[in-house]
Write a protein that binds this DNA or RNA. Structure first.
Length: 460
RNA sequence: GGCCCGGUGGGAGAGAGGCUAUCCAGCGGAUUGCAAAUCCGUCUACACCAGUUCGAAUCUGGUCCGGGCCUCCA
């Protein structure tokens, strides 16, 4: 199969051809760790997790890096507010981020570079940019000279003259041009700082990605991903820094950007108070359902997050796991290939909704198959395909057993015991007693399903 | 203002010049002691107006509406 990806650079779907098929490289802008991850942070993590799984299916060696931004003004503010070192904040929230992402099926990247571990690389890149006339030092700052890079604005299709003329923010006095951006800024004694040729200071936001990509992945990488809001200025600035530091070498070949998550049709914002934390959502639904809800729309489309959408994702998983459950009498072939239609959908710019449709077609086949060989084939394809999206990763019985959150519901043994009692009652044609047992269980959130091979149950 | 996206059935959401997307919900049937699950069938669609075409939800132009970015942002 061929993989086609929508490249923000060309605003077109292109066939993905890695520069080196033996080492496919991908970098994704990760979190700034100063608070809990919200559902909008989770989207790129999940989307690019699916992409890296697909890449690994197609190529033998994929190197995936996702950074941790651990120095930033918001982090500094949080640290000052709480009267602690920034490391206290960043270590805490990095752990939480990783745990929350793991809960929604996001496996860690191969490399997770931290900004503060790359200060020497940043200084080296700034020295090089200054030496080549692409940056200048002024008042303790190091500033990128945007007009020195004529292609600036190419990714976001912005006209440099307009950028120069139309800056809506007051232009800092140390900048030569309104569109210039800061690579390094001076720190006051109460702020974190590192020694540099320009005095004690700290990095601006954009430089870390350029340096970490160069160090860990190389001068030219295949894929760079992130949220669509990063196109300008963040990725535009990365292109400027890296291209100028590398004598004009191509920096990134395919730029991928995911759409925003809105909440009930509104943009998430602290002022509206509608910021949904993954941490909180995990109390509302299983992580796998959150993952599926994020994948139920195409990654480039805006996604409107609603309680109803999450509830629907749970039902979709009920259906898929239900199909898997009917196939519990056959074994899946671990060496099987994913379903063809499913792969084709993912290969078409990660069309996850269409890939899900292929999964549901397999589920229908699972529910109608009778021949054991057929069942085994369907089960293998369903599992292989779904796993490629990070779905159907648990045993169906565990999915249906659910979480007895309050701990006041009946446990599996009790349920099995009652099912046996009901079976006895049914055998004696005492349907009143059988129905009483079933109704009792239903009142405790347990649904029974009678099948040819006995009675199954599920919570919820 | 500049640049860029969208408007699909009751809801979510793909697709795309002629062929059932899919899921949830509804309705009818099968199955079931009755249910649940499942299967089969089925009703509401492609914002509006022109144009191109044998044929347009899909292409072109325009109109209306909504959203994003324009140096905090995933």
């Amino acid at each position: 199969m061929t993989l086609h990806l929508y490249n923000t650079l060309s605003r077109d779907k292109e066939e993905f051809v890695p520069v080196d098929p033996d080492r496919v490289t991908m970098y994704v802008c990760g979190p700034t760790v100063y608070s809990y991850a919200h559902i909008g942070n989770a989207r790129p993590a999940v989307v690019f997790d699916v992409l890296v799984r697909l890449l690994r299916h197609l190529w033998p060696n994929v190197v995936y890096a996702r950074n941790i931004t651990d120095i930033d003004d918001k982090i500094n503010a949080a640290a000052q507010e709480q009267g602690v070192e920034i490391g206290v904040i960043t270590e805490k929230f990095e752990k939480i981020y990783l745990a929350d992402m793991a809960a929604i099926g996001v496996t860690g990247p191969d490399i997770d570079p931290h900004a503060t571990d790359h200060i020497p690389e940043m200084i080296a890149m700034m020295e090089k940019l200054i030496a080549e006339g692409h940056a200048y030092a002024a008042e303790g700052h190091v500033v990128f000279d945007v007009p020195s890079f004529p292609e600036y604005g190419g990714l976001s299709r912005r006209d440099q003259d307009e950028l120069l003329a139309g800056a809506r923010v007051d232009v800092a006095p140390y900048k030569k041009n309104a569109s210039d951006f800061v690579l390094w800024k001076p720190s006051t004694p109460d702020l974190p700082g590192w020694g540099s040729p320009w005095g004690r200071g700290r990095p601006g936001w954009h430089l870390e990605c350029s340096c970490m990509i160069e160090k860990h992945l190389g001068r030219t990488i295949d894929i760079h991903g992130g949220g669509i809001d990063l196109v300008f200025p963040h990725h535009e600035n990365e292109i400027a820094q890296s291209t100028c530091a590398h004598g004009g070498d191509t920096f990134v070949r395919y730029w991928l950007h995911n759409g925003f998550v809105n909440v009930d049709k509104e943009k998430m914002s602290k002022s509206i108070g509608n910021v949904l934390l993954v941490h909180e959502l995990l109390k509302q639904a299983p992580g796998e359902a959150i993952r599926l809800a994020l994948l139920s729309a195409h990654y480039r489309q805006p996604l409107d997050w609603t309680d109803d959408g999450l509830a629907q994702a749970v039902k979709m998983l009920d259906r898929l796991y239900g199909a898997l459950r009917t196939l519990s009498d056959v074994d899946a072939d671990p060496s099987a290939e994913p379903d063809e239609a499913f792969l084709r959908a993912l290969g078409d710019d990660l069309n996850t909704p269409q890939a899900l449709a292929a999964l549901f077609e397999l589920a229908r086949q699972a529910n109608t198959a009778e021949d054991p060989a057929d069942k085994a084939r369907v089960k293998s394809a369903l599992l292989k395909s779904a796993n490629l999206m990070g779905l159907l990763t648990q045993d169906p019985e565990d999915w249906f057993a659910g979480d007895d959150e309050d701990g006041d519901g009946p446990d599996a043994d009790e349920i099995e015991h009652l099912i046996q009692a009901r079976k006895d009652a049914r055998g004696a044609k005492d349907f009143a007693e059988a129905d009483r047992i079933r109704d009792d269980l239903a009142a405790q959130g347990i649904t029974l399903e009678d099948g040819a091979d006995g009675t199954k149950w599920r919570r919820g």
